Amino acid sequence: MVPLYGGGVDGVLRVRDLDEEALLAEFVPLLPQGDAEVPVGDDAAVVPVSDGRFVVTTDVLVEDHHFRREWSSGADIGWRAVMQNAADVGAMGAVPVALVVGAVLPGDLEVEWVRALARGMAEACGAITLETGAACGVVGGDLSAGDTVVLAVTAHGDLQHRQPVLRSGARVGDVVAHAGTLGLSAAGLAALRAGREGHDDVVRVYRRPVPPLAAAVAAARQGAHALMDVSDGLLLDGGRMARASGVTLDLSLAGLLDPRVRAVAQAAGVDPLPWVAGGGEDHGFLATFAPGTLPAGFRPVGRVLPRGGQPVLVDGATPTLRTGWDHFAGG
């Protein structure tokens, strides 16, 4: 490592103190390479897969829009960047095997924060490998300078010779089911915004979501008719599945309120159900199955009806709750 300017005047090594090669040397060795035949270091990576098809998805995280550095550590943000993309891969019935990351970094950013970002990504890849049994790594990417932190992550998944499960396959008479948590991330965000302490469980879900990838793979193996990641809210994403499938989903929120979500809502003096129905970033999975075929990890949350006037109902009625997060409508 050769600092260009001898380090910051405060003694803290910052991004602007290194050239690109030196900065890469600070964090690339921290990143797992999965089963890459050609890992980081060449013009592109080469990754083997067992299937002749590849699942590809991408997501962007922008500082002060998707995360705040005062609320989450570099490691937390690295974890989330990997996991929210892994959830999209899982939503197709595939397992994540490789990611590439484009990062825009301000010059005043501490190099230790960048190292922590890489460590968080490595921890997330390790958790994915442990859950799915398939090696997962960060096999490449790009760096650029900018005024704020931006992470663009592309994830690749292996279908392992299964057919992809689409959101457009829900059938009338199916059971609608969900795996994972609902409302915990939204409650965690609310606790952080209010500066309330004592809600570590929900804050942890906001900072480090854990999509139930094994349950998604089990859904694909069990013959799920439709499957998708719940990243923007149960009602909003349920509506997307319903419109894609040409049906109506009739959902029930009964029994879905986690006591930890209720506790945050009570402290804030608000109704917790909008967090359950419209809170995003838990990264669970919504699926539909033929009756009697739900795999472990899924719980029934509704039924599929013929297409009606609304894509989503709650207990047979048009929902009055906030449906979910929209990046451009502001919620």
Rank of each mutant, 00 (worst) to 15 (best):
residue 291 P to L: 01
residue 159 L to M: 12
residue 315 D to H: 07
residue 13 L to G: 10
residue 8 G to D: 14
residue 104 V to H: 06
residue 325 W to E: 15
residue 109 L to G: 08
residue 150 V to K: 10
residue 249 L to N: 10
residue 154 T to I: 10
residue 74 G to L: 11
residue 235 L to G: 09
residue 164 P to I: 03
residue 61 L to Q: 04
residue 159 L to Y: 12
residue 316 G to M: 07
residue 42 D to M: 04
residue 116 A to N: 13
residue 10 D to Q: 06
residue 182 L to T: 13
residue 57 T to M: 08
residue 331 G to N: 05
residue 297 G to R: 01
residue 293 T to I: 04
residue 71 W to Q: 10
residue 34 G to Y: 01
residue 222 Q to V: 15
residue 40 V to W: 12
residue 231 S to E: 12
residue 264 V to G: 06
residue 15 V to T: 03
residue 318 T to K: 02
residue 158 D to F: 03
residue 98 A to K: 08
residue 174 D to L: 09
residue 166 L to Y: 15
residue 303 R to D: 07
residue 114 V to A: 04
residue 314 V to H: 01
residue 277 A to E: 03
residue 136 C to A: 07
residue 123 E to C: 08
residue 157 G to S: 00
residue 318 T to R: 15
residue 211 P to R: 00
residue 227 L to Y: 01
residue 6 G to E: 08
residue 290 A to P: 10
residue 189 L to Q: 09
residue 310 Q to R: 10
residue 289 F to V: 08
residue 207 R to Q: 11
residue 142 D to T: 10
residue 50 S to Q: 08
residue 227 L to Q: 06
residue 265 A to E: 02
residue 32 P to Q: 02
residue 233 G to M: 02
residue 309 G to K: 10
residue 15 V to G: 08
residue 314 V to Y: 02
residue 259 P to V: 00
residue 128 I to P: 05
residue 189 L to G: 05
residue 141 G to N: 03
residue 291 P to S: 02
residue 320 T to C: 07
residue 114 V to H: 00
residue 104 V to P: 07
residue 236 L to K: 14
residue 251 L to R: 00
residue 39 P to K: 02
residue 20 E to W: 15
residue 97 V to Y: 02
residue 288 T to V: 11
residue 73 S to W: 03
residue 318 T to V: 15
residue 98 A to H: 04
residue 85 N to D: 14
residue 143 L to T: 05
residue 48 P to K: 02
residue 43 D to R: 08
residue 306 P to S: 06
residue 312 V to E: 04
residue 274 P to M: 01
residue 284 G to R: 00
residue 209 P to C: 01
residue 170 A to H: 06
residue 255 G to M: 03
residue 243 R to K: 11
residue 112 E to T: 14
residue 125 C to Y: 08
residue 162 R to T: 09
residue 122 A to R: 01
residue 157 G to N: 00
residue 68 R to L: 07
residue 65 H to C: 11
residue 59 D to Y: 14
residue 6 G to N: 05
residue 2 V to P: 11
residue 57 T to Y: 09
residue 69 R to F: 12
residue 41 G to M: 02
residue 124 A to V: 06
residue 247 V to W: 03
residue 151 L to A: 00
residue 143 L to C: 11
residue 315 D to Q: 04
residue 63 E to Y: 06
residue 33 Q to R: 04
residue 62 V to P: 14
residue 18 L to W: 12
residue 125 C to S: 04
residue 58 T to R: 15
residue 285 F to A: 02
residue 274 P to D: 01
residue 95 V to P: 07
residue 55 V to H: 03
residue 112 E to C: 12
residue 244 A to H: 06
residue 53 R to A: 15
residue 128 I to G: 08
residue 18 L to F: 12
